[in-house]
């Protein structure tokens, strides 16, 4: 059994994100492995710990510094990693094309991708990658079990949940509820030093995959989302404030 887990390095949720002149400034932000991606790493580790002989390979496409996120996965217990080093911020479709080449070479049975990474707020990478590979996918997965050659997953859909069976190989996107990711332990952090982290330039990987080494869309500007709010605080005891609120929602904001 071989599992590839796809990673992204994203700003910590508490990080302050700034923008000026239409360009994002992340210089002050702490960057971490995306929380959604951690669920995939953890699930792969658990599959191995349940006794199935499993090689786990982390795969990421991002700038030089994304190696730090990859090292977190290695310290959590992933066996080795491939880092497609890219200074271009690819969109999901372009990244899926590039990564599909690497995944094809690795030929795993299962690929985990975070359900929606906290930098691009996109959930497209998993489905796009599955399509590029010609594989089925399940997204927003909260439960996963194996039965010879197939997996059964429970995932969230618009009006509830759905249980699917998928033949392998398949792409599964992960989210909260699937498991509780572990911290890398100090001994494992030290051991990770000796694991292989193979860096490959985007241009080479893209050429080998027959994919463009560039975005499919054009990012023109990034601005901080600001919405002006009324910021009215209603005073008085609970009854007075509640009555005044309902009155204002009806008469002032006209939403009731």
């Amino acid at each position: 059994m071989k599992i590839v887990t796809i990673l992204k390095q994203v700003p910590d949720a508490e990080a302050r994100v700034r923008a000026s002149g239409g360009t994002l400034d992340l210089s002050g932000a702490t960057l971490v492995i995306d929380g959604m991606d951690e669920y995939g790493v953890e699930e792969a580790l658990r599959i191995r710990e349940r006794g199935m002989e499993t090689e786990i390979v982390a795969l990421a496409c991002g700038p030089e510094r994304a190696a730090e996120a990859i090292r977190t996965a290695l310290a959590m217990g992933v066996d080795r990693a491939v880092h497609v080093v890219s200074d271009v911020t690819l969109d999901a479709v372009a990244m899926a094309r590039v990564l599909a080449g690497v995944v094809q070479d690795e030929a795993p049975e299962l690929v985990f991708v975070g359900g929606k990474q906290a930098d691009w707020d996109s959930s497209a990478l998993g489905p796009a990658l599955a399509e590029a590979l010609g594989w089925p996918h399940a997204d927003w997965t909260t439960e996963l079990t194996f039965e010879d050659g197939t997996i059964t997953v429970t995932h969230d859909i618009d009006d509830g949940t759905e249980t699917l069976t998928l033949p392998l190989p398949a792409v599964v996107t992960t989210q909260q509820g699937l498991n509780e990711p572990r911290y890398p332990t100090l001994p494992n952090i030290m051991k990770a030093k000796r694991k292989t982290l193979e860096a490959r330039p985007l241009a080479d990987v893209a050429a080998a995959a027959g994919a463009p080494a560039d975005r499919a869309t054009e990012l023109r500007a990034s601005e901080i989302e600001a919405r002006s709010r009324r910021n009215v605080v209603l005073d008085g005891d609970a009854k007075t404030a509640a009555t005044e609120l309902v009155r204002r929602l009806r008469d002032e904001a006209k939403v009731l």
């Binding site: 971490v32 190696a67 730090e68 090292r71 977190t72 310290a75 911290y183 890398p184 332990t185 100090l186 952090i189 030290m190 990770a192 030093k193």
Partner: peptide, 14 residues
């Protein structure tokens, strides 16, 4: 070092 950054982020998260 890379390991120290890992140790730092683990200790911080914990």
């Amino acid at each position: 070092s890379d390991e120290q950054k890992q140790i730092q982020s683990m200790a911080r998260a914990f």
